[in-house]
């Protein structure tokens, strides 16, 4: 269903690897793109195998990650272009898509994409009420009313500098 826009770097001789998603779709990726993921790099260093099976990433998420890796591996693109690609990459995506993306970046150890997605999620939560975050991210409130009131009151983020007070 989904195929990557795998153009490969202009210097054609580069090696490629095949990555298979948990639902069986296979993607052809240039090695220069694959090694941007620390885990893929490790696998490629350890064995000659050109086929990597990822048991916990679905085809839709994998296609996105590969599109990201290919763009970032493209030496022909300037850093500015890559940055605007990043912006566009995370915008307008559903929260569930972002969740699978961030989980995939954790598995594949793609730090820069992980930061980009995390930043996007932080931006989404900016100036929002707790109730909004719970509803939109579909998170069950597992606090007892007393515990929630206690956390609201205590404000653990406040700095405890009572002992630094003057006299």
């Amino acid at each position: 269903m989904v195929t990557t826009d795998e153009k490969g770097p202009l210097t054609a001789k580069k090696k490629s690897v095949i990555i298979r998603s948990c639902d069986g779709d296979e993607f052809l990726v240039s090695e220069s793109a694959a090694v941007l993921s620390t885990s893929l790099k490790k696998i490629l260093e350890e064995k000659e195998d050109r086929l990597i099976h990822l048991s916990d990433i679905d085809n839709k998420t994998l296609a996105m990650v590969i599109a990201y890796l290919s763009t970032h591996a493209d030496d022909g693109l300037s850093d500015d272009l890559k940055r605007s690609f990043d912006q566009e990459f995370v915008s307008g995506k559903e929260f569930d898509v972002l969740k699978y993306l961030v989980l995939a970046t954790d598995t594949l150890q793609v730090t820069c994409l992980c930061y980009t997605v995390a930043k996007k999620m932080a931006d989404i939560m900016k100036n929002k009420l707790v109730e909004w975050v719970r509803r939109e991210f579909d998170i069950q409130n597992d606090y007892t009313p007393e515990a929630e009131a206690e956390i609201r009151r205590l404000d653990a983020w406040a700095w405890d500098d009572r002992q630094l007070e003057d006299d």
């Binding site: 961030v102 954790d106 930061y115 995390a118 930043k119 939560m125 991210f137 998170i139 983020w157």
Partner: peptide
Amino acid sequence: SNWADLPGDLLNVILSKIFAKDRHTFSLVC
């Protein structure tokens, strides 16, 4: 997997992008 069950490392990365009173909101979610 649920948003509430994200690995701690990932939540930490997200938390590192959050500031001021949004952090308080973060703590209150679950």
